[in-house]
């Protein structure tokens, strides 16, 4: 059963963690060196990247109907078969499905920049886009936790995504349908990949605050 309707966010005010943007690009705080001119240029590129992201997201809450060591079932006939997911949701009453995207604009620009001889800018944009999509999920987790606090509940400290461990990627299709991701202009391929590429799906559990 769906505990509440899907919550859509059309503009998530997420600013990606700059350190994480750099870390994704191989930056090592104690080793990597660049001068002030490059630093200014890099900051400008990161800002441009942030400006190109149109960050949207959605989440939904679903009551867990049955828990087993290697599977959970929810929303009548929906089942996730995965020991890792079952372990994550061991103490959960509900499962939260969530997704975010930074839109297709930045993905197209990344591709153009790489093809047109400005790949150094392209990879910075790529990192900003990836970090922003993840940052949107972090923002949503924080948002949901604030909502849940009033009920004496919280989200599990970790979240899980299809394609990791024993949680097959094909679950992206199930979650895609449940969350109506076409409303966020996200498509899914027959190999369960999300388009635009910088789109992320995750699940977490809702537990009581002890």
């Amino acid at each position: 059963m769906c505990v509440s309707t899907l919550k859509f966010f059309e503009n998530i005010p997420v600013v990606p963690d700059k350190n994480m943007v750099l870390t994704r690009l191989g930056y090592k705080k104690t080793k990597t060196v660049f001068d002030d001119t490059y630093r200014v240029k890099l900051d400008e590129q990161i800002k441009q990247g942030i400006g190109l992201c149109n960050t949207k997201a959605v989440f939904g809450r679903y009551k867990i109907e049955e828990w087993q060591n290697d599977a959970i079932s929810f929303s009548k006939d929906k089942v996730f078969k995965s020991e890792s997911v079952a372990k994550l949701l061991k103490n959960s009453l509900e499962v939260v499905l969530m997704a975010s995207t930074v839109g297709k604009n930045i993905t197209e620009i990344i591709s153009d920049e790489i093809k047109n001889g400005n790949a150094s800018f392209g990879v910075v944009l790529d990192s900003v886009a990836s970090q922003t999509a993840d940052g949107a999920l972090d923002w949503m987790v924080d948002f949901i936790n604030k909502l849940l606090r009033r009920e004496g509940k919280k989200l599990t400290s970790k979240r899980y995504s299809p394609g990791y461990g024993d949680f097959p990627l094909l679950n992206q299709k199930e979650i895609y349908n449940i969350l109506n991701l076409n409303k966020l202009d996200i498509e899914i391929t027959d190999r369960y990949m999300l388009v635009p590429e910088k789109s992320v799906i995750a699940i977490a559990g809702i537990e009581g605050i002890e």
């Binding site: 750099l22 690009l25 191989g26 930056y27 090592k28 080793k31 990597t32 060196v33 660049f34 490059y38 890099l42 790949a119 150094s120 800018f121 990879v123 910075v124």
Partner: peptide, 10 residues
């Protein structure tokens, strides 16, 4: 040596 990161390399 990690003194350069990816954008610098590219």
């Amino acid at each position: 040596k990690k003194e350069y990161f990816l954008p610098q390399l590219i």
